[in-house]
């Protein structure tokens, strides 16, 4: 564990907590894409299958449970909780996210580190996470103005993988044989997809107004 990865995990945790805070306290999911949340639930479900087979650390297992629990409960809230579901913008959240799942699965079957069930699903979760934010970014452009909590959520979610990139650079130089091209490229693509959001986020942030 290094400071970059810890910062990345804490940023990721913060993004989840901000979203849960918004949904649970003000009972609103305005501006939040249910489709992105569904993709993230699939990402964690396929990435953390090894939670039962390989134990890395208490921290690792605890965080996996947090991310699994939060992503599924956010989907449940947005789908079935009456008050929250009412604030879900179904008409605008129309990105065909299921069209993302199949290509990621095919790509994982073609490009992976090991051809085993767990490894292919793990690789699939990497590819899917890289594009999971797309429905949210599309929804963002359609709804133009979003509230600060949603803006913070997206900023933190985009930032965590950026910090992971620093972690990979650090591990590459400090650990022999630490080379994971698939993870690195997927992480880079994922972070680059946030580029224009970051641009507008900092513009607004510096201007001290909400994210538009």
């Amino acid at each position: 564990m290094n400071i970059f990865r810890l910062a990345g995990d804490m940023t990721h945790l913060a993004s989840v907590l901000v979203l849960l805070l918004k949904i649970h306290t003000i009972k609103s999911c305005a501006g939040v894409s249910l489709r992105t949340q569904e993709l993230y639930a699939i990402v964690f479900a396929t990435r953390y299958l090894d939670i039962f087979t390989s134990f890395v650390s208490v921290y690792n297992t605890f965080m996996k449970l947090v991310f699994l629990g939060s992503s599924f409960s956010i989907v449940w809230y947005m789908r079935y909780h009456k008050a929250v579901h009412r604030t879900y913008d179904r008409e605008q959240d129309t990105f065909r996210h299921w069209f993302l799942v199949l290509p990621c699965l095919v790509l994982a079957l073609l490009i992976h580190e090991k051809f085993t069930f767990l490894e292919v699903l793990w690789t699939f979760s990497l590819y899917l996470e890289a594009v999971a934010i797309l429905p949210q970014l599309v929804l963002l452009q359609r709804t133009r103005n979003i509230d600060n909590l949603t803006g913070q959520y997206i900023f933190l979610l985009g930032g965590y993988r950026g910090l992971y990139i620093l972690n990979w650079i650090y591990r590459y130089f400090t650990e022999p044989h630490f080379v994971h091209w698939i993870t690195w490229i997927a992480g880079l693509v994922q972070t680059l997809l946030y580029a224009d959001f970051f641009y507008y986020y900092f513009l607004r942030f510096i201007g001290g107004r909400g994210v538009e």
């Binding site: 995990d9 390989s54 890395v56 690792n60 090991k114 972690n167």
Partner: peptide
């Protein structure tokens, strides 16, 4: 670290 536990990241 053997490959099986290669995924030590979240």
């Amino acid at each position: 670290k053997d490959d099986a536990a290669a995924h030590d990241e979240l």
